[in-house]
């Protein structure tokens, strides 16, 4: 019966694990809902600020900000947004794969890279992988704040201003739906291409454009607006990634709970077989003994 007892303890420990994973699943499900709300709440600001920047660029075609000018690419900066904790399936791994793929493509063209890691997992990744890490920030928690990101974003923007990087990308997981999260690499700087397209589309559809009164002046306003714009874009990436993290964790924990259930079923079958085998053996021993007497 020793084997049967071992199996019983094994079943017990798997049941405990199952309790933990199903609890984590439920926690992740409720956190995901809140993270999604935060994701939605950050959208109006980004939309408004994009409109305003578009208007200014429209009204002052003669003034081109550095952030709108495409220049020759010698160095590229990446802001990599990851989660702080693990146990969320392949979320971070897929993201890092996307980073490596892009990094390799740039390296092959002789471009140098700089990285900024947001989230503990990204920091740990760059520790192993190497690469020039210029800024890092972890422990953003479930409700990240813009304040936490200002420093890291500032470093990357300074690098851009000083010509140490010529392009800036942000890499994060896009929340497609609860089941699907997709790693995306999005260009932050220079803004020119997509902003230009937006502008043309708007000009064709919008009946009238207007110029603002500026206080203090257009140039200074545009400078600080663009910084806010980039910050809000990075913030949105972080919030979206947080929603992805919870969704991925929910799915991962759900499948872990299901797998534990399957394991328990299998083990119970084995346990019952072992128990019956032991009983049969005992009976045949008794019968054999009686026959001998």
């Amino acid at each position: 019966m020793a084997a049967a007892k071992e199996i019983r303890t094994q079943i017990g420990s798997i049941k405990n694990t199952q309790k933990i994973t199903s609890a984590m699943e439920m926690v992740a499900a409720s956190k995901m809902r809140r993270a999604q709300d935060r994701m939605k709440a950050s959208q109006p600001y980004a939309r408004q600020i994009r409109n305003v920047v578009g208007h200014i660029a429209d009204a002052n075609p003669e003034y081109r900000h550095d952030y709108m000018i495409e220049r020759e690419t010698k160095r590229v900066g990446f802001i990599v947004v990851s989660s702080d904790r693990g146990l969320c399936g392949g979320l971070n791994v897929n993201l890092f794969k996307a980073v490596l793929r892009d990094a390799k493509a740039w390296r092959d063209r002789g471009v140098e890279l700089q990285f900024c890691a947001l989230g503990a997992k990204a920091s740990a990744f760059f520790r192993k992988y190497g690469g020039e890490l210029v800024a890092a920030r972890s422990g953003l928690g479930e409700a990240p704040e813009v304040q936490d990101l200002i420093g890291s974003v500032k470093i990357m923007l300074e690098a851009y201003d000083e010509g140490r990087i010529d392009r800036l990308y942000v890499v994060y997981n896009e929340f497609v739906n609860t089941m699907t999260q997709k790693p995306v690499v999005r260009q932050l700087l220079p803004l020119s291409t997509d902003m230009g397209n937006d502008k043309q589309d708007e000009e064709q559809t919008r009946p009238s454009t207007w110029d603002y009164l500026y206080e203090p002046d257009a140039k200074a306003l545009l400078d600080s607006l663009l910084v806010r714009f980039i910050e809000s874009q990075v913030y949105q990436s972080v919030v979206e990634n947080a929603a992805c993290e919870q969704a991925a964790r929910m799915i991962a924990m759900k499948s872990a709970t299901d797998n534990a259930g399957n394991l328990i079923d299998d083990l119970e079958l084995v346990y019952n077989k072992a128990r019956q085998a032991a009983i049969t053996q005992e009976i045949s021993e008794i019968v054999g003994g009686a026959a001998a007497v």
Binding site: Y45, L133, A135, A136, K154, I155
Partner: peptide
Amino acid sequence: LADTAVRAADLDEAAAEEARQHA
């Protein structure tokens, strides 16, 4: 378009320094 954080050049600088140190 409201800022949520208290902004000042030196505060931003401090935050940047912190991120750099962390890296």
